[in-house]
Amino acid sequence: MQQTVAAAEFLAACALSRVDAVGGFARDGLLSSQEVFTQQLVTGLSNGMIIALIAIGYTMVYGIIELINFAHGDLCMLGAYFALTVVGALGVDQWAGTGGIMGLVLVLVGTAAFCGSLNWSINRLAYRPLRKASKLSLLVSAIGASFILVNLGLFWGGLPMDVFADGTSSAAPKAFPALVSAAPAAQIGDVIYSRTDLLVLCVTLPLMVALTYLVRFTKLGKAMRAVAQNPTGASLMGIDVERVIGASFFIGGSLGGFATVVYSLYNQTVSFQMGYRMGMDAFIAAVLGGIGNLPGAVLGGILIGVIRSMSDGYLEARWTNTVVFGILILILVFRPSGLLGAKLREKV
């Protein structure tokens, strides 16, 4: 009897602790001022633009071969390690003025080329042999590729270089040098727009414009849209489908490369496990916007960035991942076509 009462008390305590937590969220929310809101919004938008750029890589690949490219986030992680290696080899001291900007452009373009080629090779080795296999075999292969990339990142972190802290603990997170200072570029009221926020805009916006141009107005873009619509039909029209798929992987990967450099400069720490988180955020963004839909990926990325930032600020940071994954599940269950995606009929 005593045990039953104790058990009931315990269950009641569980219920109460939930209520307490929720109450805490609401209280914090009420105390926050307008400036805090705007500041969180700025951070969220910057992170959102980065997520959007990575999400484009997911959505392009899904649009063309219906594969959730699970390795995309880890590809970005390797890109960050590549950028860190280049920065280390160039020396960290000489980053000011025109030279600094040149160096930054070099790192950006180099990392983009690296990630693009790597993504192209992954497609060639791990996905292309499975073109005729089922979607799920392809997904399992992508998960395998993701694990291989994670392990390569672990190896890479052990390089005996200064930027990797001599590589003595390869698994530890590495500090990414603050090549662009987080000093305020502009201040309106109490809201600070830092130079890194500006950097994010300067890199992501032109790339999105360029991609839109490429997909809408070039021959390659037309071929990509054709393959996405109907690969067999496209190949009958004389389009080299494999070449187009390879090009999509290259472009998606290089956008990820740009994004990962900006991400590293913005957050100033990289680790071999960061790919999973980056990849999940971007994938959720792509699904939220409607997977296979380029403007959708950008919209989804911005939304996820803002939601994360608001959840950090108004709920508690430790619940942010739960919120984001909850959104993912709700969308997949109730509106799998996303916000901007067309309704797809289930193929039987």
């Binding site: 399992v140 998960i143 395998g144």
Partner: peptide, 13 residues
């Protein structure tokens, strides 16, 4: 991780 990853990719192929 390399062992897991290779196991998945190679088995699938």
């Amino acid at each position: 991780f390399l062992v897991f990853g290779l196991a998945l990719v190679l088995m699938m192929i």
